[in-house]
């Protein structure tokens, strides 16, 4: 059976996540080339306000319940399985995000269908759907054929244009009956981010440090530059996990999405989880020792070198110019 494709609409608190439109855009394209319908599936509570944004789908399936505020992946997988079986679907598209994490593997176990993670591209070739995945922190790509064009795919944010998933049309809405699906609820409450001294999403210059900074003492090199050209210090995950900077300075998947005028990436390798949070910066300059670091695939300018040598000279030169 090949009766349709579904996209799991991703929303967190009161907003639809951008990844939803990326998924709807590529889902629309694949659905059109296979000549099958595209379903947008929305699961949660108070979700009706999101429906007008999902008009690019042929049909919107709504699963609403108080208990579904932040459902666990097992419950979402049970709901999708029920829809998949009833509608005779062939492809499920999910976001590769923390919010949806777990739905793919659990659904794969329940449906006995392959699940492919970190999808960066997908295309139809003959009787197969070919999925391109980003592996090893973005250093290697893989192509996997989904035989019979059946499977579950999770998409890396930033892989497809979000505009292609937006339309001014109105799609018919169908409410899905939840009876027969046991809702497991483990969620207690949201923990809001602590307001820090700096909101990195509002800074026009970010000097961003990664593992290449080597130790906390070297953060001074970035601070010196901030002292000269302004802005603030942000960081990739390893620096935050070491406890060298607070959580509100983290850029990427679990952290903030930033679009400064200058994003100066120092010793950041550029794993997909980081890139999704900074790729839309106006100017990206990266220094990294590794010539194959994926950060050079998104940066406008790159320097292959040791930031611990380059930064002191750069700040000295800038000081000279200033005086």
């Amino acid at each position: 059976m090949n009766n349709g494709i579904m996209v799991l609409v991703e929303h967190l608190k009161d907003a639809i996540a951008d990844i939803t439109f990326e998924m709807l855009g590529i889902g629309r394209k694949i659905a059109d080339s296979l000549n099958v319908p595209l379903f947008a599936v929305v699961i949660g509570k108070d979700i009706n306000k999101h429906l007008p944004e999902l008009g690019i789908a042929d049909s919107i399936l709504v699963v609403e319940d108080e208990k579904l505020e932040m459902s666990c992946p097992v419950t979402i997988a049970d709901i999708i399985k029920s829809i998949f079986d009833n509608k005779g679907l062939s492809i499920v598209i999910l976001g590769c995000t923390n919010t949806t994490a777990g739905v793919g593997p659990i659904l794969s176990s329940k449906l006995k269908l392959p699940f492919l993670n970190f999808c960066k591209n997908m295309r139809i070739e003959g009787d197969s759907l070919i999925i391109t995945n980003q592996l090893f922190g973005g250093k290697i790509l893989s192509d996997v054929k989904l035989e019979g064009k059946r499977g579950i795919i999770s998409i890396n944010p930033g892989s497809f244009p979000a505009d292609a998933g937006k339309a001014s049309k109105v799609a018919p809405v169908e409410e899905i009956d939840l009876s027969g699906i046991g809702i497991k609820n483990y969620f207690k409450k949201y923990i809001e981010p602590e307001a820090g001294d700096v909101d990195i999403t509002k800074e026009s210059i970010l000097i961003s440090i990664g593992r290449g900074i080597e130790n906390a003492d070297n953060i001074g090199l970035a601070e010196d530059l901030v002292g000269l050209i302004g802005g603030a210090i942000s960081a990739s995950r390893p620096v935050i996990d070491q406890g060298w900077l607070p959580l509100n300075r983290q850029v990427g998947k679990s952290g903030m999405t930033v679009k400064p005028k200058l994003y100066f990436a120092l010793g950041i390798s550029g794993a997909p989880e980081h890139v999704e949070g900074m790729k839309d910066s106006e100017l990206i300059v990266a220094i990294n020792k590794d010539p194959a670091a994926p950060i050079f695939n998104v940066a406008h300018y790159g320097v292959c070198g040791d930031l611990l040598e380059i930064m002191p000279v750069l700040t000295d030169k800038l000081k000279e110019k200033k005086s």
Binding site: A101, P105, N117
Partner: peptide
């Protein structure tokens, strides 16, 4: 970094019939 078929903990949760959190 090589989780092309997704994360281990959820597959394990399904096999053991235990709740899994990531």
């Amino acid at each position: 970094i090589d989780d092309i078929e997704g994360e281990l903990v959820y597959y394990l949760g399904e096999l053991l019939n235990l709740p899994a959190f990531g």
